[in-house]
Design a protein around this nucleic acid. Structure first.
Length: 703
DNA sequence: CCTATATAGATTTTT
DNA sequence: TCTATATAGG
């Protein structure tokens, strides 16, 4: 253990060894915070004799949880049953054992985004409200914000005067369906812990609580943390206010800012030494983030080498941008850089398409993180719905999904009738029998009867067949393959392959966990709905494509950030207030600091949106990077092939000035230089006058 | 009353 | 470009 501690710098070591009071670690990007957390856990187990299962560590994603566990085990050289999980999965556990306390049954289902919108659509219809104003996706986020404490029901009333009945009916429906949404998981978790006996049990049980990515916790999560930590204050949180990128989901910077107030005698340790990035990349990141006002303020430094300048490519169009990225990647691979060390980021998922196309054309294999997730694919959700129905009599959400899939001539009218019936009946067998009795057309009666019989057959098979066989059986009895073939002529093969993949995954899951029957499927389905984008990342020889949000917590030697245009990044939907722009800037900061060695930025002067080419302006974030850190990559003037200057990219100790002097303004720090010679425009910051742009010939160069 | 086709309309980020 | 709704045909 001594040896281990020697691998840490003084601040890191202090953070590992400090146990006297609640601890807040402000950890800059790449400052080795995961290292600190894992060493701290290892230290607790090895030196302080904590029982591992009584240490609770909360991470942002399940992938991070798995990795943290692995790293601790590596340090200690043995299996360590530390309780590592996300807030959401922790609450599921809590809820499965205390479901009755909040009026649920233990086998409740978790509705995903799609289910939630379906439900809301129903609610709006039932209340006869304007579907324009009360669109499912708008409502979804409003209700979510109400639940996670961003604003109150009353204040939402100002914009949506019928929000109250919607909120009420939506929640009632969830309850009736024995279902919860993502926000409910946390709310119920908090409610369970509000019972003092339960709370003190968990407070006593967990001897220490660690929370990673603390800047992205919301109010409810904070309350959960507080009640588990209790008064003993055995809590350590790690976060970075500059990387808070989820305020739209209720993440609350206040949680960081008020930590010292809420936890008595809290100790704060800053980690400001960066081990990840080159000096150039770090300097750029520092410069950009310094434009934000809402921060505690810290300045990262590094002993790493200077590194190559940041490359900037100005493309004429989005397709040229993609072409540039793919050519550049090809060059890098040719030079011996492994594809898995390369990542391409974009602000929105829709930007991935043209990059994908270009990569495919170059024959570069890639993986996409996020986008339409595996478990959100239609064919997967269909099969899972049948699986659920065969297990749970009362999963009516799945029943609606499956009613006319595959097509059996039961449309919206029948669906409406079904809805009526479900107000009284709760199991699918009962519901379907009633429905059959009510229908008048023989064709429809038969269809309903067949559906019911199919489900009966499936019900009998769940314990008989292995998971793989069960999935195969579902496909057979429902004629699902024919359905796919008829409906999706283009990508039918791919979809069928996905279904097969699902069978394999469940089989594997059951073998890994050793679970069987209902418990197996319940566990699997929960894991599936709570799985994050990052959970899907494979460790393959492939280039990785993802949104900046999905890149949180990761690092790559080579990073491309694309689509750097006003309206895209920063996104136009987040450009109304300075708070929103600051969040976009933090997002850009996250993107930049993922890069270890080489960072390339790009944008397109014209981008195709809604199928039309539109003129764009370069992102303001580009100009916030000091220009001496950037080297523009130009394409060849004639011919389509792009030239790539990869040789001797030693940072230019260029003739570009850093410090200038002006007769009136005095000394100024140069932010950017446009053009060359005595007519170049120099933008510099003067301490008493602020930022000014001046022609070179009126300036004296000091450095 | 279901389903296939045309047309208009919308695009953030995700546990 | 892709999706959700309106409309007409079956």
């Amino acid at each position: 253990m001594k040896k281990l501690l020697n691998e840490l710098n003084p601040q890191q070591r202090e953070a590992v060894l400090y146990f006297d009071s609640p601890l807040l670690i402000l950890a800059g990007a790449g400052s080795g915070k995961t290292r600190v957390i894992t060493y701290k856990i290892a230290y607790m187990v090895r030196e302080l004799s904590f029982s591992p299962e009584r240490i609770l560590a909360i991470t942002f994603t399940n992938k991070a949880a798995r990795e943290m566990k692995e790293r601790v085990e590596k340090l200690l050289g043995s299996d360590v049953p530390v309780f590592v999980s996300t807030f959401h999965s922790f609450c599921v556990r809590l809820l499965r054992s205390h479901a009755a306390k909040v009026g649920l049954k233990p086998n409740f289902v978790i509705v995903d985004t799609e289910d939630k919108k379906r439900l809301l659509k129903e609610v709006v219809k039932e209340l006869n409200l304007d579907t324009e104003l009360y669109s499912p996706s708008a409502l979804s986020s409003v209700l979510s914000n109400i639940k996670n404490g961003t604003f109150s029901l009353d204040s939402a009333q100002v914009y949506y005067d019928r929000i109250s009945p919607i909120f009420e009916l939506y929640n009632r429906k969830l309850k009736e369906l024995n279902a919860v949404d993502f926000d409910d998981l946390l709310l119920y978790g908090r409610d369970i812990l509000s019972d003092e006996r339960t709370r003190s049990y968990y407070e006593r049980y967990f001897q220490y609580l660690l929370i990673d990515e603390y800047q992205d916790t919301n109010r409810i999560q904070y309350e959960i943390a507080r009640s588990i930590a209790g008064r003993k204050g055995n809590i350590c949180v790690v976060g970075d206010e500059d990387q808070c990128i989820y305020t739209w989901r209720g993440a609350n910077i206040e949680n960081i800012l008020s930590f010292e107030r809420d936890f008595k005698n809290a100790k704060v340790i800053k980690l400001e030494k960066n081990y990840r990035c080159t000096k150039v990349i770090l300097e750029a990141a520092n410069a950009v983030i310094s434009n934000n006002r809402l921060r505690k303020g810290k300045r990262l430094y590094t002993d790493n080498q200077t590194g190559e300048p940041i490359r900037l490519f100005r493309a004429e169009t989005d397709s040229e941008e993609s072409l540039f990225v793919s050519k550049a990647i090809k060059n890098l691979i040719k030079k011996g850089i492994s594809p898995k060390d390369i990542a391409v980021f974009y602000r929105t998922n829709s930007l991935s398409r043209s990059i994908e196309d270009a990569l495919r054309r170059e024959g570069i294999s890639y993986q996409i993180v996020g986008g339409v997730k595996f478990y959100e694919r239609k064919e997967i959700k269909d099969i899972l719905a049948y699986l659920r129905l065969s297990l749970f009599e009362e999963d009516l959400i799945s029943l609606f999904r499956v009613l006319n899939v595959p097509k059996r001539g039961l449309g919206s009218a029948v669906e409406e009738r079904l809805r009526r019936i479900t107000e009284r009946e709760r199991s699918w067998s009962g519901v379907l029998s009633k429905l059959e009795g009510e229908l008048r057309m023989e064709k429809q009666r038969r269809a309903v009867r067949e559906l019911r019989e199919t489900l009966e057959i499936l019900k009998g098979k769940t314990s008989e067949l292995s998971p793989y066989e069960l999935i195969k059986f579902i496909v057979t009895v429902t004629n699902y393959e024919d359905y796919l073939r008829n409906e999706f002529k283009e990508d039918f093969e791919q979809r069928l392959e996905n279904v097969r993949e699902l069978g394999n995954t469940i089989q594997e899951f059951s073998e890994r966990t050793g679970l069987k029957g209902e418990e197996l499927y319940l566990d699997f389905l929960t894991t599936v709905t709570l799985s994050s984008d990052q959970d899907e990342i494979e460790n393959a020889e492939k280039v990785t494509l993802m949104t900046v949000h999905a890149s949180k917590g990761l690092e790559f030697p080579v990073v491309f950030v694309t689509g750097l245009e006003e309206g895209v990044f920063p996104h136009f939907k987040s450009s109304d207030s300075s708070e929103e722009i600051e969040e976009e800037r933090r997002l850009f900061y996250v993107a930049v600091t993922r890069a270890k060695r080489l960072l390339t930025l790009s944008y397109a002067k014209k981008r195709r949106t809604f199928g039309k080419l539109r003129d764009t302006k370069p992102s303001r974030f580009i100009s916030e990077i000091p220009s001496n850190l950037i080297k523009e990559v130009k394409k060849r003037t004639r011919g389509e092939t792009l030239r790539e200057k990869t040789e001797n990219l030693e940072i230019e100790k260029s003739r570009k000035p850093k410090l200038v002097f002006h007769k009136k303004y005095g000394k100024g720090v140069v932010k950017r230089v446009d053009g060359r010679g005595e007519n170049a425009k120099v933008t510099a910051f003067f301490s008493n006058y602020g930022e000014k742009t001046i022609i070179m010939k009126f300036l004296k160069v000091l450095a």
